[in-house]
Design a protein around this nucleic acid. Sequence first.
DNA 1: CTGATTAACTCAAACGTTTGTTTTATTTAA
DNA 2: TTAAATAAAACAAACGTTTGAGTTAATCAG
Lengths: 224, 224
Amino acid sequence: MIARTSERSGTRADLIDAGLDLFGQDGFAAVSIRALADRAGANLAAIQYHFGGKDALYRAVIDHLIEIFPPRLDFAELLFTEQAHQLRGKAVAQAALLKTMASTLLRAFLGDSQMRRIVPFFLREMIHPSPHFDHFYAALPGRLHSLLTRFVALVLDTTADDERAILQAHALIGQIVVFQIGRPVLLRRAGWDEYTPARVEQIIDVLVPSLQRTLGLPVTEVTK
Amino acid sequence: MIARTSERSGTRADLIDAGLDLFGQDGFAAVSIRALADRAGANLAAIQYHFGGKDALYRAVIDHLIEIFPPRLDFAELLFTEQAHQLRGKAVAQAALLKTMASTLLRAFLGDSQMRRIVPFFLREMIHPSPHFDHFYAALPGRLHSLLTRFVALVLDTTADDERAILQAHALIGQIVVFQIGRPVLLRRAGWDEYTPARVEQIIDVLVPSLQRTLGLPVTEVTK
DNA sequence: CTGATTAACTCAAACGTTTGTTTTATTTAA
DNA sequence: TTAAATAAAACAAACGTTTGAGTTAATCAG
């Protein structure tokens, strides 16, 4: 074992995964380091050894998210930036872009297994900020929110620092995240027991036109 | 002290209020009964004496919510039921009703101090169901969701058991609750430090037209 | 190749605190 | 006098953390 830095070696990575799952499910205080060690198949002292303590493990989970997430975000930002000037005033094209963005986001958000592991932790940190929130916010939700605000500003034909654009973007995000956050409620309301791929598509079929209407864009016809 | 049942006597009521605040902020596991007793200005053993334990206190908080909430809900349901048949097909009237409902809900949700005390607990129970979720769900969020679905079904000219209506109602709720749940994020994005009454009105001014567009209704002009 | 050396890592046991709960005594008000 | 309520002390269990011995695998002189 020579190169130690940032190598995704067994126990250390297992503990971060365990933290992602358990902290995401139950929150920092509700998870014991014994539960974390068990889930990771590691010894109690491994948490002290690899991270220095429970709080430091939580921080490491955040750092791990910041490490694996931004590539996708970089790509989306680049894509949007180079398209933005061509889209001004073109409602149909804007609607098409919104459809692509929203359905991609929703499939990842609700369906993709790696993502579904991340999302609960992600949302929990936003709802109930930990002492590391600032660090986390700047790298992920802040950037995501900011990107979406730029899109909304484009549609509303205003600037991204317009508070109306920020609030409208926030409402837009709400329509999406409520399907993760309000999961227990929706499952009962719809009489479902889980989100199957077919149901995720069903949600997308309702939600994409909803988002388009929300921004006053023309509704893309559902093909099927 | 003769009549004991459901009398809002000092210590017992103080403990429920403390539970509402602390459980709502940090979740069940993260709150110690010592913190609860301190907040309530009560002795440690008072929790055992009045409720039987920490979990029983949590249950009592839920029961308290179920006790004080439904009157408003009953009123809203009655109001809607008797208006519903007159509103079929009348988009302008539907838009007006949505405006009334949404702005009332939002002012209570974000502004009213008694409500602001309740909401965090309410949302936490929905996001992270406790063993008492079923009991809670049926009395409050389920009814609220159901009522809103009936409104959405009216607007979409379909029935309340149509899954598209349920999903659309869910998305609608998302636009509202995200302003409570995503508070830390929005505050940073907008550069605010809290929700003042003026800012709540600012949110309403953006959100009501947004909700109306989402349902394909005509947008009520903002008067001011 | 061999065997001692060293660093990286794992493990079981124990530490002092804090946890929810129980017990026992005291105060309060009818 | 009596039941309701409060108060303080003590309980075992679980908590995050520390300790020191044990294991593993790479390093390198011989």
